[in-house]
């Protein structure tokens, strides 16, 4: 049993809480191991859950010691940040909402609060209240750190997936020796336009293609930004020593381009992919002739 006399005379509440956490480290970690958050993350070994709990208690004690119970940026939190994020992420994967995870973290407050009340049973009510408040603020900050970390982890995941999606959505087709095409489908935003540009340029090098066709049949709208990207792509392809043809400009889009007053003057355009291919083939010196006996076409 702790020696009460030596402890809570005139210590600041935060320091008092720090001393309490160090003293009761084992009991808190043991009880945390049975809380939903720890129990459901460390399913195999209870010892691991207890060990994880000890690390978190240590971090909290350190934060309290430096009187920064309200500061989520306190250095001591960085030690446990990764671990807590991993735990929150595991719960999120399990299907819990952010609010539910938050509630589970909040539940960690109960065991130390009970213990604190026991320890300070003989202390003046005023002091007990101050210490309990400090502990509550501290666990509240812990909750903030966990959520913040979990959210930024989630953002990183979304960013990664967005990049993967961008790459998947931009296929390069080799139409002929020296001719590559990139068909675009869906809305072109800044990020996608960038990927399209890079993909097309890489394909020009890889295939040593003298013609690159950008087919926008599947693009619903062209605004000034998309038009700007088209002009930039054409200019970059030319700098590399090839020519870029834009095909599949639908009548409605042609109207928009005219109405917006966009200048596509330097861009070679063709109505359809077939026309663009014909243009490129002729540019390569190929003749397109009708096989005898075939049905007559334009």
């Amino acid at each position: 049993m702790p020696d009460h006399e030596a402890l809570h005379q005139h210590e600041s509440p935060a320091r008092e809480v720090a001393a309490f956490l160090r003293r009761r480290r084992e009991q808190i970690a043991q009880r945390w191991a049975d809380e939903a958050l720890f129990r459901s993350v460390f399913t195999v070994s209870r010892d691991e859950a207890v060990e994880a709990g000890r690390v978190v208690v240590d971090a909290l004690a350190q934060v309290a010691e430096t009187e920064r119970v309200e500061d989520p940026d306190a250095e001591a939190f960085t030690v446990v940040r990764e671990q807590l994020a991993g735990m929150a992420a595991a719960r999120a994967r399990y299907g819990l909402s952010a609010a539910q995870v938050s509630r589970e973290v909040d539940a960690l407050r109960v065991p130390p609060t009970d213990l604190l009340a026991t320890d300070l049973a003989d202390a003046p009510a005023e002091h007990l209240r101050a210490c309990t408040t400090a502990l509550t603020v501290l666990t509240g900050t812990l909750r903030l750190v966990v959520l913040d970390t979990a959210l930024s982890e989630g953002q990183a995941l979304i960013d990664r997936q967005r990049m993967q999606l961008l790459e998947v959505a931009t296929p390069v087709i080799r139409l002929w020796d020296g001719i590559v095409a990139v068909p675009l489908i869906g809305t072109l935003d800044s990020a996608r336009s960038q990927v399209v540009m890079e993909t097309l340029l890489e394909a020009v090098v890889a295939e040593q293609a003298r013609y690159a066709i950008l087919d926008i049949t599947g693009v619903p709208t062209v605004d000034s930004l998309v038009a700007q990207h088209l002009v930039k792509t054409v200019a970059a392809v030319r700098l590399m020593g090839a020519e870029c043809v834009v095909s599949g400009i639908r009548p409605a889009i042609a109207q928009t381009i005219v109405q917006l007053g966009l200048d596509l003057g330097t861009v070679v355009t063709r109505a359809g992919l077939a026309d663009a291919l014909g243009y490129a083939l002729r540019g390569l010196g190929a003749d397109i002739v009708q096989a005898s006996g075939g049905a007559s076409k334009r």
Binding site: D159, R162, S190, A191
Partner: peptide, 8 residues
Amino acid sequence: ARPPRPRE
């Protein structure tokens, strides 16, 4: 290591 932001 940050994908381009959505259109600004």
